[in-house]
Amino acid sequence: MTTTDSSATPQTPKGKRRIGDVVFANTASGSGILILAILAGVAAFLIIQSVDSLGANTANFFTTTGWDANTREAPAFGVAALAFGTVLAAAIALLIATPIAVGIALFIAYYAPRKLASVLGYIVDLLAAIPSVVYGLWGIGYLVHQLTPFYQWLSTSFGWIPLFAGPVSSTGRTMMSAGIVLAVMILPIITAISRDVFLQVPQAHREAALSLGATRWEMIRMAVLPFGRAGIIGGAMLGLGRALGETMAVAMILSPALVISPHLLQSGNQTIAAHIALQYPEATGYGVSALIAAGLVLFAITLVVNMGARYIVARRKEFTE
């Protein structure tokens, strides 16, 4: 089946262009340009609306942890704690999700029977379709209660590592819980992209490995993983982008505090996205503008991560074709 790009097909010769063609082509390209305009608009409006509060801010926006913005008199706020929390939550999620996602992708691509594999791909998609607010509800209404005894054990056994230091939060509404729920939420995207690149590994390379007397694992290590490495990295970065921007799970689960704390099993820390969701309804004075400034930081971070991820995945594609 040919699935070629048809943009190369001859157009009606110049001078004889039909009115229908002109209108249709312009509407189509206009839509594309509109998308670029929307994206530019997102950046522009966020910048315009944040200038106000950033100008009035009496503290350093990037190094301050506090958030005293709901006032018209000398607001003092910063994203230091929020940025730290955002990166921390995403890092936990990524550390948990990436190895598991690669495992699932390998399972779907090379271990599961063919018929089961397509069902599994479908289940992974389903996992991705569940709304984040439902994950949040499940996290706060069910999971945290299940996790608390585990945290107790973790803290008594490994409390000497600052990450797991006690006293453990009795509610379970901690960074660790938020990270775990985020991990579940980004599993599908990392799995889907890894699975796609694994399936792209040419059969010739896999057979080459097998014909040398490789076991299944050796075949994967020899032919699949080197080939799929960029895809896994790209997928993980897309997952990272999603984890950085995810709002609801964190807003519902974490018991926040604007501090920079490495203790994952205690309450505290906060992410940019969750902070915005929680603060917005009560924002007054410079509050809204300050939140928009925080959103701008989040936008910039995710933009960089996503562009990096797309670049890696796209380069991989060129390399394989």
Binding site: L39, L46, G241, G245, T247, G295, F299, L303, R310
Partner: peptide
Amino acid sequence: VMTGIPSIV
């Protein structure tokens, strides 16, 4: 890139 915009943004 737009698919990666955080919903809150």
